[in-house]
């Protein structure tokens, strides 16, 4: 690829030779801005670190420099001290675990149902005809508007937060899986039939593996949404969790704690993302 680009067209070469200054060797183009060029891990690391450093630098300048009052923007030192304190007494871990538990239960419940139902929906027209209108109706309802109703029905326990996550994520997952399943190459199914696959086997033997890379990408994206809905649920009604400590900290004007909670959620999100990337590499090595 890079070599192709670096080569000159035969026409321009002969013109260059004819010109008096025609000795210049073909200039090698840098790969950096070649569209879709293979990434280089050292370059990626430098670029990512630079952006992190820039954000941290702005934060430090604004807070240490006193541009923004420490009542609204904590200094990195304050957040660090808060982190040491809350890790020390174990409260950060307790709240983080509480949040992680809710996200995992809600996300797993939702995914375990959305993936098979989505595959059926994408494969069988009657299933789609039956549930698609309802799904599309619910999908556009703002989850937040249901939180009061859920509190009324379910209370403020674990079940309520899990319900909010499931409600927020499930219908989107369903539509994404169904669309991927519907989009697979029909000739894959046709080829499978001529090799003796029965109609009842098509979903499991063809549609599922053909859709697997898209399913794993979908899980990675919707895991992020699950965290969003978790915090929504915890802000309104919870007695533990990272969203809950943020809300409590707001009442006491402890911006350092809010920052710590937000940073922790961001960090857990990063770990989740990495997990799904590794999972995709493991489960779908054919589609890199």
């Amino acid at each position: 690829m890079a070599q192709d680009l670096a080569m000159e067209a035969p026409g321009s070469r002969s013109r260059a030779e004819a010109s008096p200054a025609g000795q210049a060797p073909a200039r090698r183009r840098s790969r950096t801005w070649t569209p879709f060029a293979a990434p280089s891990s050292s370059q990626n690391f430098v670029l990512a670190s630079a952006v992190w450093a820039l954000i941290a630098g702005c934060w430090a300048a604004l807070s240490y420099g006193g541009v923004v009052s420490s009542m609204f923007l904590p200094t990195p030192t304050a957040v660090f001290e808060r982190a040491v304190a809350m890790i020390g007494d174990g409260s950060l871990l307790t709240h983080a675990l509480s949040s992680v538990q809710v996200v995992m239960i809600g996300f797993a419940l939702s995914s375990l149902v959305a993936v098979p139902v989505g595959l059926w929906m994408g494969t069988y027209a009657p299933v789609r005809a039956a549930i698609e209108p309802v799904v599309n109706f619910i999908r556009y309802l703002p989850v937040t508007s249901f939180v009061p109703l859920f509190i009324l029905w379910i209370g403020i326990g674990l079940q309520q937060r899990v319900t909010v996550i499931v409600f927020g994520v499930f219908f989107q997952q369903l539509v994404m899986v169904a669309d991927s399943a519907r989009g697979i190459a029909r000739d894959l199914v046709n080829a499978a039939y001529t090799l003796g696959t029965k109609r009842s086997e098509v979903v499991w033997h063809i549609v599922f593996p053909a859709t697997l890379p898209a399913i794993l990408d979908m899980l990675r994206v919707t895991a992020g949404w699950a965290w969003t809905y978790l915090v929504v649920a915890e802000l309104v009604a919870a007695s533990s969790g990272l969203g809950y400590i943020s809300l409590r900290a707001m009442r006491g004007f402890q911006v350092d704690t809010i920052f710590l909670a937000v940073l922790t959620i961001g960090f857990l999100g990063l770990v989740t993302d990495l997990f799904f990337r590794l999972l995709r590499r493991k489960l779908a090595p054919w589609a890199m």
Partner: peptide, 14 residues
Amino acid sequence: RGMVFQGYTLFPWL
């Protein structure tokens, strides 16, 4: 009735 298709129809996951 076995068939070899005009386009590529190998199963990419196998």
